[in-house]
Design a binder for these strands. Structure first.
Lengths: 238, 238
DNA sequence: AAATGGTAATTGTATTATAATTTGGTCCTG
DNA sequence: CAGGACCAAATTATAATACAATTACCATTT
């Protein structure tokens, strides 16, 4: 009942945003291409510049377009970083249950391992990079630093699969997961780093099954702590 | 070089959006909770109401909050459907390579299968639901209808894992994948439906390995068609 | 020809006004 | 006294306008 309006009656700025979207699609514009100015759109759509402005601002948030004085509007690039800045926290609010989030992490991260093994066989620098990050992690002395490096390790692990789409999804998952790292006890840091080491060593050996087992265990170790309930809708399904 | 501004100099509306986000986090607000009015925020942040309005509009696009006259601002629910309206088309513009998108789909969809088998054993209605959707798909006579039902089948398949986070990610992937369905030849519809049937039958038998193999093959069959190159950044990994 | 500075175009921000909508209360009626 | 209808106030929705800030482009000068 809450979002009933979203279909029955679109706000004007949403309509305008849709028309700008259509403009991009119909003209087959690619990132970097220029769009008409805000005033131009306002005149063309017969609305005030404020309405256009709200639409362009919102689309700017999504990374769909960029706006700069004198340059005007240009088609942008979707940036997961930009998105996660606003969406990541919301999953902390919307509360997916811990168990589901952990299981999702396992799926996404282990899903990339086979590709990692494949690429690592051709390119030894991949191992070195992961190893270097883990060394940094070992040197962490403060929680925020540790969190940052731990996230970087896991993101790099998935990125090493070469599947940028999967890496993008993983970026999101990691952000949603952040709250579980906030109270990660220092006593467990060391064993975490060792887990990482074992995982990348298994990958270098080409032992994908072992790496999968270790990573599943590693992520699953978070189950020890917490798990709030929640209610989150899924969309298309049903 | 394009998005350099995004870190060096945030627009005021982005700053305001960030502060509203922080407000929600700091007050531990949950979906449905009320926020101060736009005027209130404007006074509190020392900016004009237009700046607040741009922020709230953008956050409204993302589903992070709802705004209604007299009711004011309330914390919203993230809706993948809402997001995909604006992001889906952009991935068609931003162009992930087909191969990567296919591989990502395989990871996400097959990753949920083990959970599906588990839940299906306890709840036969899950099979019935998937079977019903596939029957609908079999009756499709028009491309748009077919696309819609095919997406619904695959989304329901992942949703059947019970992992709502994974289902949300999958919703996104399906939207990004849409462009590959646009020119799906009618001649292949029938074999697609049969693949679906074999998959859910394998799941009902508890044969997860077979289902995984079939689904991998099913999704991979898209490889026959196309594959544009692209350049898309990944974020955290570097 | 290159560098430098100015100018104009375009977005960024603020102010104000008015319309539309919805909640909540109040008043009237049975 | 209860219930419904209506009215009013609060709040968002939209618009019009003005000015500041920024920067791409051009002209001018050295």
């Amino acid at each position: 009942m809450a979002g009933a309006r979203s279909d029955s009656k679109l706000k004007k700025s949403e309509v305008v945003a849709g028309r700008i979207r259509d403009y991009i699609v119909n003209h087959e514009l690619k990132p970097g291409d220029r769009l008409p100015t805000e005033g131009e759109f306002a005149k063309r759509f017969g609305v005030s510049r404020v309405a256009v402005r709200e639409a362009t601002t919102a689309l700017g948030f999504l990374g769909i377009l960029d706006a700069a004085p004198r340059r005007g509007l240009t088609v942008g690039r979707v940036s997961m970083k930009k998105l996660s800045r606003y969406l990541g926290f919301h999953f902390a609010v919307g509360n997916y249950p811990a168990e589901e989030l952990i299981a999702t992490r396992i799926v996404v991260e282990t899903g990339g391992l086979a590709h990692v093994v494949e690429r690592m066989a051709c390119d030894p620098s991949i191992y070195q990079q992961l190893d270097a990050i883990n060394s940094e992690l070992r040197k962490a002395r403060e929680l925020n630093e540790w969190i940052k490096m731990d996230i970087r390790f896991h993101c790099s692990l998935v990125a090493a699969s070469g599947l940028r789409g999967l890496a993008a999804l993983n970026d999101l998952v990691q952000v949603f997961f952040r709250r579980f790292r906030e109270d990660f006890p220092k006593a467990l840091w060391k064993s975490g780093v060792e887990s990482h080491q074992q995982i990348i060593d298994a990958l270098r050996r080409g032992d994908c099954a072992k790496a999968t087992e270790l990573l599943t265990e590693h992520i699953g170790s978070h189950r020890a702590r917490v798990g709030k309930p929640a209610e989150v809708e899924s969309d298309f399904a049903e």
